Simulated assay, not measured.
Amino acid sequence: MSLGGEGEWAPPGVDPERPSVARVHDALLGGMENFASDRSVARKLKDALPEVVDLVWCNRAFIGRVVDFLVREAGIRQIIDLGAGLPTVENTHEVAQFADPMARVVYVDLDPMVEPHARAILDGNPHAAAITADVRDVDAVLGHPSLLRLIDLTQPTAILVVGVLHLISDQEQPHALVKRYMDALPPGSYLAASNFLASDSPKAKALEVMLQATMGTGHFRDRAAIARFFDGLVLVEPGVAHFPEWHPDERIPGPLAPWEELLLGGVARKPH
């Protein structure tokens, strides 16, 4: 269903004139669940950084490798995907349940469009759900009945905050937010997190300026600030790294492209 064009239908609670992070992401991937306002932002982002589509797919590949590690190697069977966005290929639950059909996944996003689309994909899947909630409201997320139906918060759980933290300003205390989620989980739980990396790179500066101008948000952070998200946790090798360097499917062929240097992420375990 294409949502573009004059007078086309929008779900209740959705303002088609106001771009959404989830729908801009969908537009960058060539999806159909977006409006003219979202496509306008996507075009501006591509003008600022022509490789932004590659960046989005790099992000998706990182999530896939992380989820596969969490289920196959770390033994995690419960995943909460914060700021999940609109469903696309190789969704978190697909990767997790390919490794273990009993793995349980809950998607969380603020955009009201995400939940109905995710529900359509998850129809008949008893081990996955989607909820509409603001990731900054920890109590609302972790206390949501649909989440509690699937996730036993007394058992080890993975929190994914990949492609989300750069949307949260320092004034909103993103490090304290991440800590609240991890404090609510038992030892043996995992955090997967990422952020755009602040640097002198012209591409980084152009993308940060464009995100601020088009979305009103976009907070790039230095390596030390990104590493702080994992304070008190035990990092999985290779630690905080550029996405292509984190458990690559094959040997990295050479130096990273400039756009591949824009993101840092990692995975860490809550110790006993």
Rank of each mutant, 00 (worst) to 15 (best):
G4P: 00
E8A: 15
P16E: 10
A22D: 07
R23L: 11
R23G: 11
V24I: 13
V24R: 08
H25P: 03
H25S: 14
M32D: 14
R39W: 00
S40V: 10
V41Y: 03
V41R: 04
K44D: 13
P50E: 02
E51D: 14
V52P: 00
V53K: 09
D68Y: 12
F69C: 14
L70I: 12
V71T: 10
R72V: 11
G75R: 12
R77W: 10
A84G: 12
L86V: 11
V89A: 15
H93Q: 14
Q97K: 11
Q97R: 14
D100T: 12
M102D: 15
A103G: 10
V106C: 02
V106K: 01
V108T: 02
P112H: 08
A118G: 01
L122V: 05
H127I: 03
A130M: 04
A133M: 05
D134V: 08
V135Q: 06
V135K: 02
V141Q: 02
H144C: 01
D152G: 03
P156C: 06
A158D: 08
I159G: 06
L165V: 08
H166Y: 14
L167V: 06
L167W: 12
E172T: 06
A176F: 05
A176T: 13
S189D: 05
Y190E: 09
L191W: 08
L191I: 09
N195T: 01
A198K: 10
D200F: 00
M210Y: 02
A213I: 00
G218S: 04
V234D: 10
A241I: 01
A241V: 09
P244N: 03
I252S: 01
R269F: 05
